[in-house]
Structures are given as structure tokens and as C-alpha cells.
Amino acid sequence: MNRAWAPEARDLQSAVRSSLAGLGGVELARAAEEKAAVRVEQLRPALESLGVLELDPLGEEVESSAAVLAVRACGEVVAPYPVTRVLSVPAAMRPGVDALYVVDGCAGFLEHADLFEQAIAVDANGGGVRRAANRSAAVRAPLDPFGAAVDLVDGAGGVAVTESAVLMSYVLDAFWIAGALQTVATDAARYATQRRQFGKAIATFGEIRWRLADIAVAVDGLDEMATFTWFQVRRGRASIADALAVRLAMLEAAGSVLRNAHQVLGAIGLCEEHDLTVVDRHVTPTLIRPFGQGRTVALLVDAIDRFGYGGTFDVAPGDGSIPTI
């Protein structure tokens, strides 16, 4: 086992971090909500100048590592640009296709879909690939700050998206959310040591410490699941069961971390001034599209039945054949 990321990938992650920090960090997400053009005027050029938007997560190991770590860095400040959707496009399809969304039947709104002319939507249920034709600017809603109306139309030119690209798309979401949750964890822990009530820091109260502990375990668990699934996808050992597993881990971690962090911060955490509120609202589209927990679990049950599930002891697929994992 070697758990170290390639140094070049770490370097890029640091560069993305400092570039985003230079643009204001979470402030950038606030600004983009006020003025949607911030996304293309400020953020996209910054990501382009670092080469982030050209990375192929299914490419060579170093490039792939750089892609997921850059995505994580973007997640840390909920950077308002759909880097996960751009990087999900298989290299062979670029530049003809500029974003890839996974959808569950119809779509309605998709985040940042107004930024693309050549987006495609892959149906999570094997319903094929369609064109995601944008038909409105981003229409701001509290829990969907950059959702833009789309029509899913046939005419994707018979393109086939490889299974590994779809699996990697789930992995990229997990890295993005892992970054966001890490920020929430750090904020909550720092706040707990600063805020005083009853004459002492609230961090001295057992209830607060337990919430912090649950936050840390959830964040770390998601990081491990994201990294492991990335590793398995790269080695061609993953099935959709693994992708749905990391999605479930992501949804559960987000639920736990956000709930606990809000509780630690009390009223101030609910204010728009506070990053927690912005992070909470801005991660929600990724937690709900293409589907939330209930449907993720239902699809996972089905996928385990079909493909099995690898572990210290493998769960065999329902028909008794050998797991593909």
C-alpha cells in the first residue's frame, strides 16, 4: 500500500487552493450568486490558467490524481463552476462535448447548464445519452443557486459514454463534496474553541465534542471512500454498485456533517454572512441531483444484486456468478 498522492497532483491542488483563496474563497460563491457572470469572468479563467479544465481523470495516474485533488480544492470553497461536470467528459469526446451530467429520467434544471452549448446527459438507469439543451439563464433559488433550465433531447449523435466515465463522474462529485465538508469541519471546530457560554468555550461541553467527533469521522470516511473508489475505477475493478456506494457515503456524510455543524454554530451558522450557510446551500444540488438518499439506496440494492460487492468477504451477485469487482 502506498497512500501518497503524486507530488505533482498535490502541487496543483495547492495552486488551485491559493488561486481560489486569492479570488476570495467562499466569497466567490456569494459573488456569483449576485452576479452569475463571475463564474466565467473570474473563476473559469483562473481554472483554465492552471490547466484544471483540461485534466482527464481517466488519463495517466498523475493527471487523474491532479484532477480529483483539484476538484476537492474547488469543493473546499464551493467554487461556482461545474468543474466535476467538465472533467466527467471522456477525453475522446472533448471538445465536441463540454459537460456531462448524470440524470435520472427527466432533468428540468441542471446546475450551471447555461454555461454550455454542448452538454450531454447520461441516464443513470441505462436510458442512454441525450443532449442537454439549455433554454434559460441560471435561475437563482436558495438551494439551487445556479440551476438553469434544460431540455433533454435526442440527437447526441449516437455517442456512447464509457461506463468508467460514468463511474468517475460519481467519484468527482464525492471529492467535491469531501472538500466542502472539510471546510465545514474546520470551521465548526474553530468556532467551538472560540465561542464562550456559561463562562467557558463550548468545546468543553461533551455534546459539542461528540458532534465534532461525528463530523470528523464522517469527513474522513468520505475521503477514504472517494479515494478508494477512484482507485478501483482506475483499475477497472469498479461497477455501478461501487459508484452508488460512494454516492451513498457522500450523502450520509453530508447529512451528518451539515446537521452537526449547524448545531455547533447555533444561530450564527444560519446567517448568509457565515460560510456554513453558503456551503450548505451550494452543496445541496449535488446531493439531490440526480437523486437523493432513498433512490441511491434503491439503485444500490439493485446494483449489488447484479454485480455483487467487493469486501474482505465478497457479496456474490444474485445469480451466483463471479463478482466483477
Binding site: 474522513d220 471512500m225 456506494a245 451513498l248 440494492v301
Partner: peptide, 28 residues
């Protein structure tokens, strides 16, 4: 579990994800 009710099957799938997560955290 394959013959169990949908709620139990969902719990089973969740447990598999939690087991993998626990293993990975221990290996870390």
C-alpha cells in the same frame, strides 16, 4: 436478504457501505 422486504434490503446495502468505510478508515 434477497428475499427480504425492501426496507431490510436497503439497510443491508447501507451496512455494506458502512463496512467498507470502516475498513478503509482502519487501514488508514
Amino acid at each position: 436478504t434477497r428475499d427480504a422486504d425492501p426496507a431490510s434490503r436497503a439497510d443491508f446495502a447501507r451496512a455494506l457501505v458502512h463496512a467498507r468505510t470502516a475498513r478503509l478508515l482502519n487501514h488508514r
